[in-house]
Design a protein around this nucleic acid. Structure first.
Lengths: 156, 156
DNA sequence: GATTGCATGTAAGGGGTTACATGATTTT
DNA sequence: AAAATCATGTAACCCCTTACATGCAATC
């Protein structure tokens, strides 16, 4: 794939795995190339930079296997939304509900976009990732509904 | 709270929010003190460094409110486990199942420890965070059971 | 006798994002 | 006319973790 394609793929199907910004992506690809872990094929185009398609090499595959066999590091998460909700003693009830509604909108948009990917996915591993993300979003939506109810009841 | 207490609190009740290592925690506390956003009370002890209890100031509360009213930044997540599963075309079925079993163990341990916190929690906001984390862990456990089943069926 | 808990902190280094720079083509 | 898509890349900077340093008390 090209750097551009990798970014799109990570942002859609792989949301639950992590993120990829160009500032990390391109330098990483260059490093992998220098290490001969990948090789590149340049496809010239008109009106835009040549598309560079990267492909893993035998050496890259060996390194990958070594990495795969080591136990994964713990998840890193950072959810500012949750922190604001927790520290939100100084917010009014309406501000709290605004926070929650906005979050719900994001989750719902995420679900819709993942459902589109889900119908299009062919690789079973891709389906795993999509179903993982969907399960997380749906669990959060249920939790959001519960706390929204609590806040309205308590008439903050 | 003291830096030490904050760390414990973040690691248990606030797992779903983020992490706090001493290398970030103490310098941040010093910075907040310099900004007069917090004040400190030193409580001498025998046989160990004085315990420093931090408390938010009026100025700190103002700054906090300003921050609370800005929309939260998007979540940052990084799940190496998921990435290894996705890239695990080069792993044997047993290696895949090993990955999954280890993950299940971590999730189950997380659930147990959160359930203990849940019974002990008094603040309703703390309960929100604990229930959020529990919902995520439980959703993941169900998803894990499904893909485990798929892998065994396919007799990789 | 060894490990865990309590309690502070620093320094080096790794990892990542954001913002910038460029520019044609297609869609709204 | 404006915005999004395609497509590459760099530089500055921020944030954060890891590893280290110190040391007593209590538990296993």
């Amino acid at each position: 794939m090209s750097g551009y394609d990798i970014k799109k793929h990570v942002q859609s199907t792989m949301v639950a795995v992590g993120s990829a910004s160009y500032g990390t992506l391109y330098p990483t690809l260059h490093k992998l190339l220098a290490d001969q872990a990948v090789e590149v094929e340049e496809i010239p185009q008109q009106g835009r930079p040549a598309r560079k398609e990267y492909r893993i090499t035998g050496r890259g595959r060996e390194e990958l296997l070594g990495w795969l066999q080591q136990p994964p590091v713990d998840d890193r998460v950072q959810r500012e939304f949750l922190l604001k909700l927790y520290l939100g003693r100084h917010l009014t009830g309406d501000e709290m509900l605004g926070l929650i509604m906005a979050r719900r909108g994001q989750m719902e948009a995420g679900v819709r976009s993942l459902q589109a990917d889900h119908s299009a996915a062919d690789d079973p591993r891709q389906v795993w990732l999509i179903e993982y993300a969907l399960a997380m979003y749906q669990a959060e939506l249920e939790w959001l509904a519960q706390i929204e109810h609590q806040i309205r009841q308590a008439s903050w």
